[in-house]
Design a protein around this nucleic acid. Structure first.
Length: 280
DNA sequence: CCACGATCCTGCTAGC
DNA sequence: TGCTAGCAGGATCGTG
């Protein structure tokens, strides 16, 4: 599941590989729900002939800009991949978008579950409205200790749920939330507004460190995730708690537990991450 | 503001 | 072997 580090890795790879190329075709759109604001004909009319000007990330959204200021935006949800392949090769099973490029390759969106979404925005203002309705300050580039404290002070929900809220921490997902909370030694069910100064400091450090290390490792490939060239990440080798229920905590040795917070599988150490004190 | 459940999807796996 | 039930979960939306 592409979260912030996986989207960042893909964006960096695309920036290296496709900026300056011209879009020569748009094909293979076969599931209308996946292109809610731009059916295939519109994508084709808007994009063919344009040059790719940039690639980036907003939260978990991958963004590709054109020389005339449009923005093609892709959210891969859980199982989607964006791959650069030879346009000559037949589109693989579960391809739902192919953007042909002037170097003979095609950018393909492949998603067996059809959860991915593709949007087209006419200009940065158009895109800005979409993003500002959904995303808060980027936890990698924009978060500060002060804004973290303010966000948490306003929220009485469970810590894990707040970390998963894209309006608060765009790009955070289930896997990295568990890793961050373990590193910060904070229980997922703590109330967000209950954190002390010291705990907020640990949380701030952990968000930055986990995300930076995961980007350095080019993301986590537990199941589907691959970067634009088809290469898996390596952070799965460095996971401390996610998917490790039953194994000993790397810090204190107690067995890692798995529970559910909302509908999310949640991994934590009962020894290092003390449960909240319940009031009578 | 918060919690919870349903929805969208299909591949994979555990269990019988 | 072959079937089925259940799990995986990001975003969104409706209900309480």
């Amino acid at each position: 599941m592409p979260e912030l580090p996986e989207v960042e890795t893909t964006a960096r790879g695309l920036r290296r590989e496709v900026v300056g190329l011209t879009i020569v075709s748009v094909d293979d759109v076969d599931w209308p729900r996946m292109v809610p604001n731009a059916p295939e004909e519109l994508l084709r009319a808007a994009l063919v002939g344009r040059r790719v000007a940039g690639a980036g990330r907003r939260g978990k959204y991958l963004t590709i800009s054109t020389d005339d200021g449009q923005l093609l935006v892709i959210h891969r949800k859980m199982a989607g991949n964006v791959l650069l392949q030879s346009a000559e090769s037949p589109a693989p099973r579960h391809t739902h978008l192919s953007v042909g490029l002037s170097d003979g390759r095609a950018l393909r969106l492949i998603d067996a579950r059809k959860f991915s979404r593709v949007y087209l925005f006419h200009d940065s203002e158009d895109a800005g409205r979409f993003f500002s309705e959904r995303l808060g300050l980027d936890p990698l580039d924009e978060l500060t200790p002060a804004t973290l404290r303010q966000t948490m002070a306003r929220r009485r929900g469970r810590l894990k749920s707040v970390l998963l809220d894209q309006r608060a921490f765009p790009g955070m997902g289930n896997l990295y939330t568990d890793e961050v909370l373990w590193r910060a030694r904070l229980h997922p069910l703590r109330s967000a507004d209950s954190l002390t100064r010291a705990e907020l400091a640990r949380l701030f450090e952990s968000i930055g460190a986990v995300l930076a290390e995961a980007i350095e490792a080019r993301g986590t490939s537990i199941s589907d995730y691959r970067d634009q060239s088809g290469q898996p990440g390596e952070y799965q080798q460095r996971l401390q708690v996610y998917g490790r229920d039953g194994e000993p905590c790397p810090r204190c040795g107690r067995a890692i537990l798995k529970t559910w917070v909302g509908a999310r599988g949640t991994h934590f150490c009962r020894g290092c991450q003390r449960p909240p004190v319940t009031r009578a």
